[in-house]
Design a protein around this nucleic acid. Structure first.
Length: 192
DNA sequence: AAAGGATACAACCGCACTCCC
DNA sequence: TGGGAGTGCGGTTGTATCCTT
């Protein structure tokens, strides 16, 4: 059995204080990101590494774009969700300054409802019938073809019981707009 | 003005993946 | 090559704030 990521005792939980934020910012500015497990002790924080990483990534990073989502961002999220399903980190990767957590929250609180109001099922982006199950994931290959398959709530491809999946896939495919999105993943630029 | 419900979002939890020995 | 450690991701929960009655 895997050990917990950190000892439950001796760690703070819940909302971060200004002092804790400042300690984390100071430490990362001096030493950079990485080695989250040992960071809390080194930075003098009574938090688990996971919690520190989450706080930094979702809230403290200087390049974050705080505030409301623009309409263009909303539409992009909707389109990307139609293609990728609940792959929030991939979706957030296409939105500079936004985090996966932020995108996920915004989807759950705003965009889901928006689609429902438009008569679109937020799970499969089909017009007309709303269901609470399967979303889809689509992969663009190098030929520009797209390959779509149902995914479950874990984001895994659902290959089991695929009797009617081909019909559903073709229906889904034809109901999707031509998004013409470039989903190639760029390698990070190497400095130096 | 107060109570209860709805909403928004920060944070936690647990699983899965990758890396390294 | 197997196993453990570290990390990332998505789902879920907790709570503060706003809104309605």
């Amino acid at each position: 059995m895997r050990k917990p990521c950190c000892e439950k005792k001796e760690t703070n939980k819940g909302a971060w204080s200004k002092q804790e934020d400042q300690k984390l910012i100071d430490y990362i500015q001096k030493h950079g990101e990485g080695c989250w497990r040992s960071l809390p002790q080194a930075a003098g924080l009574l938090r688990c590494g996971k919690s520190c990483r989450l706080r930094w990534v979702n809230y403290l990073r200087p390049d974050l774009k705080r505030g409301n989502f623009g309409e263009d961002e909303e539409e992009l999220i909707i389109k990307l969700h139609a293609l990728l399903g609940n792959r929030w980190s991939l979706i957030a990767g296409r939105l500079p300054g936004r985090t996966d957590n932020e995108v996920k929250n915004y989807w759950n609180t705003h965009l889901k409802r928006k689609l429902i109001e438009r008569g679109i099922d937020p799970n499969n982006h089909k017009l007309g019938h709303y269901s609470t199950t399967a979303t889809k994931s689509c992969v663009l290959n190098s030929n520009g073809d797209d390959k779509c398959s149902p995914v479950n709530s874990n984001g895994n491809e659902n290959n089991a019981g695929s009797n009617s999946s081909t019909d559903q896939e073709s229906n889904h495919k034809s109901s999707l707009p031509d998004l013409n999105l470039d989903l190639t993943i760029a390698l990070p630029l190497m400095e130096g």
